[in-house]
């Protein structure tokens, strides 16, 4: 099975948000991380293709990592290779040149060339919080989609997947024939969330996030192929039609107060805040 995983690098969310004089996000000196949901997507792909207990990858399986981003995004891509992706495609561009439409178009081009059995992506990039690209891509490809996946189980001998989707009212189970686009939610990294019929059902993945690269993985990543491409290679132009005009910081909340005890709290909620 061949899986394509997408990865965007995002500014480290723990940094304080600053705005430039021109009214855009100030990223001077910012540090970056791989979008957490994309790390989870890669973790999902690895779990789909390995025996988690014996820690061995299925023969003939492949994970291709794709990222659109600036030149210096190589670090986050290498991190994905070190986690276990087999090779990567880096479409070199800048944030100002792309939007969800451009990203979806480029990914469509990559997929038409690579012909993966399934595309696994994050549900949302935590910088723009858009939650768009996976669904747009599936629509463009005419593929089924299973978004907000909290669990994935391969079915029909690997020709389909049953995906547990986190929806407003609970968890919806949807079966999609492959190829399909799957976007993952937070719970996908739960101990038993991914079932591939190979990892014993008794085996529980540990850890609170995606796996960290091992030393061996880091060494191996240096030799893995990383192809550098341009938007034009996929027929895309650096002309975003979703344009950011400017950003502002939200108004701060007025300072609150610490109250001494519960009777005081209830009194203030009733009389002052008129909330009870």
């Amino acid at each position: 099975m061949k899986i394509l995983v997408t990865m965007k690098r995002v500014p480290d969310p723990t940094q304080k948000v600053k705005v430039t004089k021109e009214g855009h996000i100030d990223l001077t000196g910012a540090s970056y991380i791989p979008n957490t949901f994309d790390e989870y997507a890669l973790e999902t792909a690895l779990r789909l293709l390995e025996n988690g207990e014996s820690n061995t990858r299925q023969a003939g399986s492949e994970i291709v990592l794709v990222s659109l981003g600036p030149d210096d995004a190589g670090k986050e891509i290498r991190n994905g290779l070190a986690m276990g992706a087999d090779r990567a495609i880096h479409v070199v561009t800048t944030d100002a040149e792309i939007d969800a439409l451009v990203v979806a178009k480029v990914l469509q081009g990559v997929i038409e060339a690579e012909k993966p059995d399934v595309v696994v992506m994050g549900k949302q990039a935590v910088d723009g919080d858009s939650n768009l690209v996976g669904q747009m891509l599936a629509g463009k490809l005419g593929w089924p989609q299973a978004t907000f996946a909290a669990s994935v189980e391969l079915a029909d001998g690997g020709k389909a997947a049953v995906v547990g989707r986190e929806v407003d009212g609970g968890v919806e189970y949807k079966k999609v024939n492959l190829p399909a686009v799957i976007t993952v939610d937070l719970r996908i990294i739960a101990p038993h969330a991914v079932k591939n019929g190979v990892t014993p059902a008794t085996f529980a993945y540990a850890g609170e996030g995606a796996r960290l690269p091992s030393l061996k993985g880091i060494m191996a990543a240096k030799k893995k192929p990383l192809a550098s491409k341009k938007l034009a290679d996929f027929g895309a132009e650096p002309k975003p039609l979703i344009k950011e005009l400017g950003v502002v910081l939200p108004p701060p909340r007025a300072a609150g107060q610490i109250v001494a005890d519960i009777p005081t709290l209830v009194k203030k909620l009733a009389d002052e805040a008129k909330a009870l």
Binding site: P11, P13, V17, V19, I25, L101, V126, D127, G128, D129, L241, I242, K243, E244, L245, G246, V247, V248, L249, P250
Partner: peptide, 19 residues
């Protein structure tokens, strides 16, 4: 043109959709 929260609601971005 629409205003949408980005970066976990720590900024409001105004976007223009050109389609």
């Amino acid at each position: 043109q629409f205003v949408r929260p980005i970066l976990a609601g720590n900024a409001y971005s105004t976007v223009d959709i050109g389609t």
